[in-house]
Design a protein around this nucleic acid. Structure first.
Lengths: 182, 182
DNA sequence: ACCTGAACACCGTTCAAGT
DNA sequence: ACCTGAACACCGTTCAAGT
């Protein structure tokens, strides 16, 4: 059935946006491709590596020169997908995908530009802290959306005043200020 | 069978340390208590809320006056349990447990003490950023341990030089410095 | 009030056998 | 090389019925 790894990944991403991560199962992906469940395992090692591949796809458009831009871009790409942060957290924990180390490089070099005096170690620490913050905060943001049954594309409710892009950007500013003074 | 919510939670935590989160299933918890699977649902709403209760138990010993102490304490309690960070991330996303807001208060007040000039909003942002960093970094730490099949109680390998408590503490110092200068 | 029995509607993964 | 059929060993959750 000219099944391919790419076809599997994009079908998984379709199921993700339509039904959420809980309904992205190997069996449903297979059914959606008109194929037996076992057929997937010729192209993909296991479900974990499929999620890692989805993560790469989700994170690949992230760009930006400044940390502020990178933080907003990352948050934007995560919220563009249903359960995007949850996928990225699960996918980043699985190496073999360079998705998270690519992200780390982007953030680290932006921080080096904005705080040239800081040591490479400190820039790396700050980069990872910011990335984990965006992932974690966006995950909690999306979890609460799901519990309250709200649609993510709706007008931003006042309830997520504590989250949102603004506080993420503010964390980036704090990190840069810290790098400059230490 | 004098089944209770507490008994369920502590059995779940036993299974966690012995077999890992993937093997903490409602059915196994029930079997371990000598009870039918459905019996659990009289004391616990669902698996999600059981994990939230486990999270409260894991995070409750976290203490510290300074952010450095809090960061090490949080990292310590998470690594004391197999898959501790994964449980905490899943549990924190589920409200109804005050575990994560308690943690937020501890971190926020420590930051206020160390950077009294900062606004309450900034202290909150910094607190959440640090908490998410510790959770995320520890999760990746523990994921890699599992993949390499190493025991967590073994001597710290050189491979996790990038993670560990030191970089987490350093992030706390950067955050405090940022709060002081902004 | 609390628990059992039994079902419902699923999972991820493997692997002989086919083409 | 790539896929099917069919199985293995499970899941979370519900709910009538019992005590």
């Amino acid at each position: 059935m000219h099944l391919s790894r790419d076809a599997i990944v994009s079908t998984a991403l379709e199921l993700l946006t339509r039904y959420g991560l809980a309904d992205v199962t190997m069996r449903r992906v297979a059914t959606n491709l008109g194929v037996a469940p076992g057929a997937l395992y010729w192209h993909v090692a296991n479900k974990q590596s499929l999620i890692a591949a989805m993560t790469s796809e989700i994170l690949s458009p992230v760009t930006g020169e400044t940390t502020t831009e990178l933080v907003s871009s990352l948050h934007g790409e995560l919220t563009r997908w249903r359960d995007g942060a949850e996928v990225a957290i699960a996918g980043a924990a699985f190496p073999e995908s360079s998705a998270s180390s690519d992200l780390e490089k982007l953030f680290t070099s932006a921080l080096k530009r904005e705080a040239p005096g800081a040591s490479p170690e400190d820039s790396g620490v700050a980069a990872r802290a910011l990335i984990h913050y965006v992932l974690g905060a966006t995950f909690m943001e999306q979890s609460r959306e799901q519990l309250s049954g709200a649609s993510p594309s709706a007008a931003p409710s006042a309830s997520n005043a504590v989250s949102g892009v603004d506080t993420l950007v503010r964390a980036a500013e704090l990190m840069v200020a810290g790098l400059r003074t230490l």
